[in-house]
Amino acid sequence: MNLTLYVWRQPAGSPSGQLVKYDAPDISPDMSFLEMLDVTNERLIARGEQPIAFDHDCREGICGSCGMMINGVAHGPMKGTATCQLHMRSFKDGDTIYIEPWRARAFPVIKDLVVDRGALDRIVAAGGYISVSTGSAPDGNAIPVPKTDADAAMDAAACIGCGACVAACPNASAMLFTSAKVGHLKMLPQGQPERGRRVLAMEAQMEAEGFGGCTWHGECEEACPKEISIDWIVELYRDYIWATVVRREERAAEAAI
């Protein structure tokens, strides 16, 4: 099939960019979206032009490297699918496709479709873990976990950290990302000791990074390639309120001593 692309081109180090039109003839429906970009890039290089920069690695929908707005939708038209797993059979001959980077204050553009998502790592560093140093663990079966809890933890842990939720959110909030990690760890007995501290620290870091707040649009859940449920955000709020109260009481008790 023959397609027309409008691709966001932003030179490295430049604060702005523009949409540039390219023809993409002879595209096979069996190609993945990224293979379509590969073919386009090979043609650009042959013509002496700069190829389009985009992040990718596993091309299996698991590393979370890839991600772009495709016709205004994060990861494109297919639900529950990362860009690398989207295939050209989702498009028709003659289609025009607009391709743009994730747009969010906390994700500055580095070049073309490549953005800096380091803020997500810093949210995890703020508390998205269980503090257990190597060597200090009890036997794996010493901590039974009800299967339903383990399954729910896995549902949340499936997040690939691609940032589509942020890109899709009108407020550029990272609430779905943050709540998925908070949710994964709160479902497990191992996660209980740090449960309150974790949610407060991660939420604070999210704000510090310049992500917006959640006003319940639900676009994040729609865009998520792993279909992480927005219910985790409710769970996060619940813990957040609880932890804030506990924290206040702790502070009061400390002051009393």
């Binding site: 269980i130 257990v132 663990a137 794996g140 039974p144 976990v145 299967k147 383990a150 994964h184 996660g191």
Partner: peptide, 20 residues
């Protein structure tokens, strides 16, 4: 030891109904 360490970190391994 690896399994023990990963469980303690919160790796959500598959489990049986008994929780093991």
């Amino acid at each position: 030891n690896i399994i023990d360490q990963c469980v303690a970190q919160g790796v959500p391994f598959a489990r049986e109904y008994g929780g093991l």
